[in-house]
Structures are given as structure tokens and as C-alpha cells.
Design a protein around this nucleic acid. Structure first.
Lengths: 201, 201
DNA sequence: GTCTATATTATGATAGAC
DNA sequence: GTCTATCATAATATAGAC
């Protein structure tokens, strides 16, 4: 769904409007107007308003899995880079997707987290628990490869991620869309270095 | 505004509904119905829907200032408790207000942060920057009192708070209203202890 | 201060011509 | 697949009786 079909245009307009005015704060009318069609035409592409939101969530889920390094890549990374540098790389990938759509969807999910069960699930699992589990496995591999000392990998993973989440929270307000915020990158780097003072080999 | 006047009842019903269904997702009708009056009666107490939201934000701001320890109390705390214990105390106060209203308002602010300028300001300043500045000043006092070694107080304050924010993000979904989540408290304590391994005297 | 009644506008959604 | 027309409902808000 990358070509500029009408369906895709509706999708993108909805993402933009939902992220800026909220799901409830955006009407089908507005979306249609942004695309340059009549509201009734929307229903040729999506069953209803909720169906648009659902498709936005689906897109986000698909994209996320493509962001996480593969097992093969992970192995190579551990060979080539220092443990802190690996985490800096991972954090930067998330923080700087340069994908405006994903940035916007992240905002939609955030603002819907208390009302929409799927959004809540994203926050709790996809944004919080899965990354921590992934970092934990990564740290275990690093320890196995002798790159870091044996430590409580789960706890270190939590410290890495919770701090990251806090920084990102500020980031989402500070940074301009699609841009790169030097100050935040600095914070992410410092954060990773700080945590790894505890885990040095 | 603590007595159960109609205005107060409207206020509380609005807080409950806004936190559960969102500001845009809640109608004046619903609020009135929850209170047991007609919608038109709402307008005898609040100018309009936005006025209710504004009064909710005001309430939150007033309450927050009462949470932060006074300068006098701060001095006493530094004398009596260890630096990590002081931060544990502060975090627990925020995390466990036992004030259902404040918990709910925090959710409203969170969900409105991208649409409402006042909510955005709360998140960015009241929830992120002011606490960090406060922790920094606290750490400086602790260093002056010889309780911790000289360190980059601003950075340590950031590490303390960003981690706290991440934990709270999960907490807001995990914990049941007004209750106490043992697991999260554990995380907060571990987090503070972790940071202070770097700052030990 | 609450009610009934009403005005006005916005909204999600459908029917049917082209 | 888009349009016009239309519907039904829901929303915010006001006027005025009691």
C-alpha cells in the first residue's frame, strides 16, 4: 500500500489529522476534504471511521517488526560494536525513524491509550515489555560473548528502556516533525553510557 | 471546592468520564446524566465544556504544588534520611497519591497532550522539567551537606526522572484505580538504588 | 438553580444516479 | 469509484417558565 491510490491518500490524511486533532476530534468530512473527495467516497475504501483507525494500527505493527534487527544482524552487531554503541544504535533507530507517518501514528496511539484497547496493548506490550525482553536477550548474548560482565540482565534492560521512554516522552513535544533533535540524541547517548558504567567488563 | 455542591459533582463526573472516554469522547449530556441533572443545568455552573476542562487543569496545578516538600521539610529530610531514601519517598508520593481524582486528571492530561496547549505545557514543564530542576537542586544540597559526592547533579536528576517517567507510564495501565501496585513500587526503589550507586559518598 | 423546549450545527453513514 | 442528496442522530448551547 505505498502507491498514491485514493485509499492510501485517505490513510495518510487520516494519520495526519488524527495525530494533530485526535481520533474523536477528527471527522470523516475533514479527512475527505483533505483528500479532495466527498465524505461518502470514503466508504468505498473503508467500512467506517473505526476501520481507518484499525488500518493505521495494523500499519504501525507491520512497520515495527521491520525496525528490530534480525538475529543474524544482532550477531554481527555484537561482534563489531561495543555494547553501549549497539544500544545507541537501536535507540537512534527508534527515535529517528525519519518516517513522518510512524511518528504520527505513535502520537495517535499515545493519545488513544486509555480509550482504545488496541492502543493500550501497543503501549504496554509493543512499546514497553517487548523492547525490554529484547534488550534482555541482547544483554545475555553480550555476556555470553564476554563483552560485558554477568549482571542482572532483566534489570539493566529495564533501566535502559524506562529511561529511554522518559526521554522520548519529552522528545515527542520538542522535536519538529521528521527532524532530528541534537539535544535529545545527546541525552540518549549519555543515558546509555551511564547505564553501561555498571555493566563494564 | 470540596463540599458536594452541584458544581463539585459536575466536576467529579467530568473527571471520571474524561479520563475514561476522553474529552472529545464525552458529551455534556453524559456528564449531566451522571450527576442526575439536565444538560442545560450544567451551564449554570460552567460557561461551556471547555470551561470544565480548564477548571480540571487548574485543580491539578493547585494540587501539585501541595505535593512537593517545602524548603523547610527538604532541609529536615536531608538531615534525617539517606539521599536514595529521600528520592524513594518523593517518587512514592507521586506514584501513590491515593487521590483518585488526581490519578484521573493525570490521564486526561496525558491523552490531551498533543491537542491541548495547556496539557502539553503540563507534560513538558510540570511533569518533566520542573521535577528535574527540583531534583537537581536537591542533589546540590545533598552534596553541600556532604551526603553524596560531587557529581553532575543535572544529569543525575535527569536519569532519576526519565526512568521514573518510564516506570509511571507502565504503572498507569497496570495499577487499579486508587490501589497500590507492589511490583511498581519495587521497580521505583530499585531504580533509585541503581542511580545512587553512581553517586555514593 | 433546575426544568422544558428549542435552535443550530456537526457527524457518521446510506441510497442511488452517473 | 465518485458524486449529490438525504437521513438520523448527537452535540453544544440558549431562552424562558417555574
Amino acid at each position: 500500500m505505498k502507491e498514491k491510490t485514493t485509499k492510501r491518500e485517505i490513510f495518510e490524511a487520516a494519520v495526519e489529522l488524527f495525530s494533530r486533532k485526535g481520533y474523536k476530534g477528527t471527522s470523516i468530512r475533514e479527512i475527505a476534504y483533505a483528500v479532495g473527495i466527498k465524505e461518502s467516497s470514503i466508504y468505498n475504501h473503508y467500512k467506517n471511521k473505526e476501520d481507518i483507525l484499525r488500518s493505521i494500527f495494523d500499519y504501525f505493527r507491520d512497520d515495527l517488526s521491520s525496525l528490530r534487527p534480525s538475529e543474524h544482524e544482532t550477531g554481527k552487531l555484537i561482534d563489531l560494536l561495543s555494547p553501549p554503541d549497539i544500544f545507541k544504535l537501536i535507540f537512534m533507530r527508534y527515535a529517528n525513524t525519519e518516517n513522518v507517518i510512524i511518528d504520527r501514528i505513535a502520537k495517535i496511539i499515545f493519545s488513544e491509550q486509555y480509550f482504545n484497547p488496541q492502543a493500550r496493548d501497543f503501549i504496554l506490550n509493543v512499546e514497553i515489555r517487548e523492547p525490554i525482553a529484547y534488550y534482555e536477550s541482547l544483554l545475555r548474548e553480550m555476556a555470553r560473548a564476554g563483552k560485558i560482565s554477568e549482571t542482572d540482565c532483566h534489570f539493566i534492560a529495564e533501566e535502559l528502556h524506562y529511561g529511554f521512554l522518559g526521554i522520548i516522552m519529552e522528545y515527542s513535544h520538542v522535536k519538529k516533525e521528521g527532524e532530528y533533535d541534537k539535544d535529545t540524541i545527546q541525552k540518549l547517548i549519555r543515558h546509555v553510557d551511564f547505564i553501561f558504567k555498571h555493566v563494564q567488563n
